[in-house]
Design a protein around this nucleic acid. Structure first.
Length: 622
DNA sequence: ATAGGGTTAG
């Protein structure tokens, strides 16, 4: 745990006699310089004349405050006037103004203004300290927050619980949950302060974010034991964690429990539940939540509408999402970048790039700045349609818009490049993403393995697979399936069989796709009997062959010219209700000599070939 | 009086 940094020790700070008020020694021009803030910010967010700069920039994560430009301008202007008023306005006036600026998410501006007070040797109180620490947290610089904390301690002031809460929140925002836990335990063990419901709530949120909802639930029980009554925020945190873990019924139970204890849910609580229910496709239950909100006179907000729009779009129900879009406007909520992004993603998932682009243009017309997620969706849509040029155009647009590409951006582009066979470019991009400090994740690796296999670079995929495992990634069935399929299609049946065994030893279970890949491997080698044995084995394991399975075997029989097996296989397909796909039909036409096509065959084929295959000009699928 | 906890999009 870094409690303050070295440079703080060099700072001489003197306190005014009044408790809770800090005054810095005038020898130092700026606390930001002491804290190394100017030097350590790479993106120039805070250069010495940052106030004017931050006036001309909008916060990176939201386009919502573009309209707040004048408000920010006013706030900064007022602040600067207040500084020179005599007598000086009360600190709480400054704090209120700073609070407004923080609400507008102009964190570096707020820090600069506090710094200005500091420079003028105007005393700063604990509230203002909390504001500053909070701003550092949002800028992902909790190290500087701790440095500031060091200042407070240094001049002999007792930090408040809220100060610790703010520090905890900063750690949570940087995913440093372990350190947050350490700090929390230290507070209790050394009796530094009595945690309040905010302290517990912050830590519970951190635990949920780290995937440890169970521990968060235990903490909820613990705080009650200690006589600290959980607030609606505390309950909502756990409910949200449970919903994200898809344990929505447990979340609903907790909702009943909190109401039983007369802690009443608000719109945030319901938003989490609606998200969780929609995510499981429990539309009726989600509707019930909306009805309950209505009864409790809780109005849906922006998040509610966005959650619903997103859920509909993911289900391909864009028309319903558009209805929600209209309703929210009717109810006086302006759709924001999330609303538009949800719609864009919905169209992209359906491959309707014209429509997606139209929505994109609309949002730009409405002065709503697209963010990286919006662009990622569009890039994904173009990649899915194999339109890598359009995808690349947007990829370049990211830098032009001064946005930061994410790991997902790269994963998506990698997918697109592999899809059109540009594996060399993909591998270069993979190197590039790492060189700019982005760590590939599970999805990146999955895309890479799939791309390499589909582009006949199975050996590369296999050696990468070993590296991935060494790096601590736990492969799933899909990864194994990709490699098994790739191995089989490249004639490496032995490798495929080894992978198949390995998958079992990891406690994973092959699915229908895995089995089909293996069956295909045997068929490609002419080992039709072995392929059929796999079918028996998979049925024993509770995975049942599908139409693809039977067509793979049929094609194996046809390729390896075993006409005697054809009829019996077709009869089995008929018995099981499977039909002949286009590839099989193509092979049937070309490989069965005319004299073999007796009436028996003709009838069966007639029966097993669906009309759409007959009409498809008999082109093979591949 | 002013600060600090929970919700949405790839």
């Amino acid at each position: 745990m870094q409690m303050g940094v070295g440079c703080v020790a060099l700072v001489r700070i003197s306190a005014t006699p009044r408790k809770g008020i800090l005054l810095l020694d005038s020898m130092h021009p700026s606390f930001l310089l002491w804290l190394g803030f100017y030097n350590s910010m790479d993106n120039n967010l805070l250069s010495p004349n940052s106030i004017s700069k931050s006036l001309s920039t909008t916060p990176a994560r939201s386009g919502r405050y573009v309209k707040g430009f004048d408000k920010l301008n006013d706030a900064v202007f007022l602040f600067n006037r207040m500084i020179h008023m005599k007598p000086l306005p009360l600190l709480f006036e400054f704090n209120k103004l700073l609070g407004d600026i923080v609400k507008m998410k102009h964190y570096s501006t707020a820090i600069s203004l506090i710094n200005k007070l500091w420079l003028l040797r105007i005393s700063v109180d604990a509230y203002m300290m909390n504001i500053a620490i909070n701003c550092f947290s949002h800028l992902r610089r909790i190290d500087l927050g701790f440095a500031m904390f060091g200042c407070i301690v240094k001049c002999g002031h007792e930090p408040l619980v809220s100060t610790y809460n703010t520090l905890l929140k900063g750690l949570v925002l940087e995913d440093r949950i372990f350190e947050a836990e350490v700090l929390f335990k230290k507070l209790i063990r050394e009796r530094i302060c009595e945690p309040n419901e905010v302290t517990y709530g912050t830590l519970m949120n951190g635990l949920c974010k780290a995937g440890n909802t169970n521990m968060a639930i235990r903490l909820l029980a613990y705080m009650e034991e200690k006589g600290c009554k959980p607030s609606k925020e505390g309950y909502s945190t756990i409910i949200d964690g449970l919903c994200k873990d898809r344990m929505v019924d447990d979340a609903l139970t907790l909702l009943a429990e909190m109401i039983g204890k007369r802690v009443f849910p608000n719109v945030v609580t319901y938003n989490s539940l609606i998200y969780g229910l929609c995510n499981l496709g429990r539309w009726e239950d989600a509707k019930q939540m909306l009805r309950e909100m209505d009864i409790r006179k809780i109005n849906p907000d922006m998040h509610t509408y966005n959650i619903l729009m997103d859920a509909f779009c993911k289900e391909g129900m864009i028309e319903d999402a558009e209805s929600v879009f209209c309703i929210m406007i009717e109810k006086g909520e302006q759709p924001d970048v999330v609303s538009y992004s949800a719609l864009i993603d919905g169209y992209c998932l359906r491959g309707q790039m014209k429509e997606a682009t139209a929505v994109f243009n609309t949002m730009i017309d409405k002065n709503i700045e697209p963010n990286i997620i919006t662009l990622n969706s569009l890039i994904n849509g173009h990649c899915k349609r194999s339109n890598i040029d359009e995808a690349m155009k947007l990829f370049k647009e990211i830098a032009r818009k001064k946005l930061e590409p994410t790991v997902s951006t790269y994963s998506t582009i990698l997918y697109g490049l592999f899809k059109v066979g540009r594996s060399k470019d993909a591998l270069e991009l993979f190197e590039h993403m790492q060189s700019i400090g982005l760590t590939p994740n599970f999805i990146t690796y999955s895309v890479l393995l799939d791309g390499l296999c589909k582009n006949h670079q199975v050996d590369k995929a296999l050696s990468l697979f070993r590296i991935i495992i060494k790096n601590g990634i736990h492969p799933n069935v899909a990864m194994y399936t990709v490699l098994i399929d790739g191995s089989c299609k490249n004639g490496k049946l032995d490798t495929a069989m080894d992978l198949f065994c390995e998958l079992y030893s990891r406690g994973l279970h092959p699915n229908i796709v895995t089995y089909n890949a293996m069956i295909n491997g045997f068929c490609n080698k002419g080992l039709i009997e072995e392929a059929k044995e796999v079918v028996i084995k998979m049925e024993k394991n509770g995975v049942f062959p599908n139409s693809v399975t039977y067509n793979i075997i049929l094609q194996g029989i046809l390729r390896w010219k075993k006409p005697k097996d054809v009829l019996s296989h077709l009869k089995e397909m008929d018995a099981r209700g499977f039909s002949i796909d286009a590839s099989s039909f193509y092979l049937l036409l070309h490989m069965i000599p005319a004299k073999e096509q007796d009436s028996n065959f003709a009838d069966l084929i007639q029966k097993l070939v669906p009309n759409d295959v007959l009409k498809s000009k008999f082109q093979p699928a591949k």
